[in-house]
Computed example of a mutant assay.
Amino acid sequence: PADQPVHNPVNAVMLGRRNNPPDKEKGIRSLAVYSPIHYQELPELFMDFICSLTGKSPSTTGAGSEGALTKGPFNALRPAADLNSALVGFILTGYAGFSTAAGHIGPNVRVDHDISLLIPEIWCRMSSEERDPEFLIKEGLLEPLQDFDYEGQQIPASRLGYRITYKFLLRFFGRVFDNPASVFDETILKPEKQDLESFVDGIQYIAEAQQRVALQYFQDGSYEESCPPLQAVLSIMAHGEWKGHTIHDPEVRSLFTRESLLKSEWYQKRLLARQEREAKLLSRHLEYLDAFAVHPGYDREVPRLGIPERREWVEKQLAHVSSPGYLEELSGMIGAQPGADLNLSTE
């Protein structure tokens, strides 16, 4: 109807990156290798999640691998539990791993949070189809970074994923700016144009940090608690290969598809763990209601609070949750980390 608004919700949450330029005097290496918007497929995205690498902020003194996943006081569990759930969620929902740059783009362009504040204005002017990575890649609006050789060393630039192109700039930034090319020149879209040596060292720094963090997963038991797709990524981060395959091989990429997830044994174990925990919770509810009903002095409270009716409802829920059909209902959900994978008793 003409008198009703047309709703076009933005179904995206874009990650932010704190990128710092190099400071050789203080021994701080560059992370400013990202252009304004990057897209990473799940293997590369979870390399970043595992490492939690962040740049030096003007308000802090440190830089390196940090963030909530690596802060013990925030979570007593090892990070594999959160990473497994996050990966399942990403795969099931088809969530796209876009990120924006903050701080610096290249060593010479300081942007602070200007890009982070601008991108939502761009994103809300794009349709759902235009925000689809497959569409953007097909149309040449995103370009993949390729590994390359520099002074006899292979630089794993592909870990940065895809970045926006000049064509993307004209089509979408032009919906905000009259002349977007005057604001974002080639050195912003391609930070290596500012300083190739700094760009190379930044990528090497990322790869080295990812290797260092991944090796810790092998040392503290987190590798064994990780699901098979993340085990493949961790092996590649730490040792450069997984069962003879690289990150680019279809044997690795296929582990991150929805089809592979739904038919995998490890995902079925997650659903079973969720079913068992829900059943145990409902059983505890029954025990509590039974104890309440016979507690001395609660005779009047039992009918007033509808304890018999509540117990009947819990019994029905327990029967439903314990049935084989409920396991089928859980398909497509995150499930739960099996207790055995956390070295915890399920009793």
Rank of each mutant, 00 (worst) to 15 (best):
Ala214Phe: 09
Leu15Val: 12
Ser235Thr: 09
Ser235Gln: 11
Gly325Pro: 02
Arg284Ser: 14
Gln337Gly: 00
Gln204Met: 15
Lys280Thr: 09
Glu186Gln: 14
Arg270Gln: 13
Asp48Glu: 13
Pro79Leu: 08
Glu129Phe: 07
Ser52Cys: 15
Leu282Ser: 06
Gly94Arg: 04
Thr70Lys: 10
Glu66His: 14
Glu278Phe: 04
Phe184Gln: 03
Pro120Cys: 07
Ser59Trp: 11
Gln194Pro: 06
His7Pro: 00
Ile37Trp: 00
Asn108Asp: 15
Leu342Gly: 04
Pro21Lys: 10
Leu69Lys: 01
Phe90Asp: 14
Gly103Cys: 06
Asp249Val: 03
Ser345Arg: 14
Gly339Met: 10
Asn75Pro: 00
Leu230Tyr: 02
Arg212Ser: 14
Tyr95Arg: 12
Lys26Gly: 03
Leu271Met: 11
Asp149Thr: 14
Asp149Tyr: 11
Ser260Pro: 03
Lys56Glu: 08
Pro1Glu: 05
Glu224Leu: 13
Glu328Cys: 04
Gln146Ala: 11
Tyr150Val: 01
Gly55Thr: 00
Leu83Asp: 00
Gly72Lys: 15
Val314Phe: 10
Arg163Pro: 01
Lys316Trp: 09
Ile122Cys: 07
Ala238Gly: 12
Arg212Leu: 12
Pro324Phe: 08
Ser85Asn: 14
Thr100Ser: 09
Leu117Ala: 13
Asp3Glu: 13
Tyr267Ile: 02
His245Glu: 11
Gly16Met: 09
Leu289Phe: 08
Ile203Pro: 00
Ser30Cys: 12
Ile203Asp: 00
Lys190Tyr: 15
Arg304Ala: 14
Val213Thr: 08
Lys26Pro: 01
Gly339Arg: 04
Ile137Met: 14
Pro180Ile: 08
Val176Lys: 09
His104Gly: 00
Ser30Lys: 01
Glu41Asn: 12
Leu142Lys: 00
Thr100His: 04
Arg270Ala: 04
Ser322Gly: 09
Pro107Asn: 07
Glu225Asn: 06
Val302Thr: 08
Leu31Ile: 02
Ser235Met: 05
Asn8Ala: 13
Pro303Thr: 03
Arg17Glu: 09
Phe49Met: 06
Gln275His: 09
Ala12Ile: 14
Phe98Tyr: 15
Phe74Leu: 15
Gly244Trp: 08
Val88His: 02
Tyr95Cys: 05
Ala181Cys: 11
Lys263Ala: 12
Glu25Tyr: 08
Lys24Gly: 03
Ser52Leu: 06
Ala63Asp: 06
Arg310Ile: 06
Ser222Ala: 14
Gln216His: 10
Gln146Trp: 06
Tyr205Lys: 07
His285Asp: 13
Gly62Gln: 10
Gly325Val: 08
Pro58Gly: 04
Glu276Tyr: 03
Thr70Leu: 14
Gln268Thr: 05
Leu31Cys: 05
Gly55Ser: 07
Pro1Leu: 04
Ile105Arg: 01
Cys51Asn: 04
Arg163Glu: 02
Asp114Met: 09
Tyr95Asp: 04
Tyr267Cys: 03
Glu130Tyr: 07
Val321Gln: 03
Arg253Tyr: 02
Asn75Thr: 07
Leu142Arg: 00
Ile307Gln: 04
Arg125Cys: 03
Lys167Gln: 15
Ile37Gly: 01
Pro5Tyr: 05
Pro107Cys: 07
Glu309Leu: 11
Asp147Gln: 10
Phe148Asn: 04
Val213Ile: 15
Phe292Gly: 10
Pro308Tyr: 02
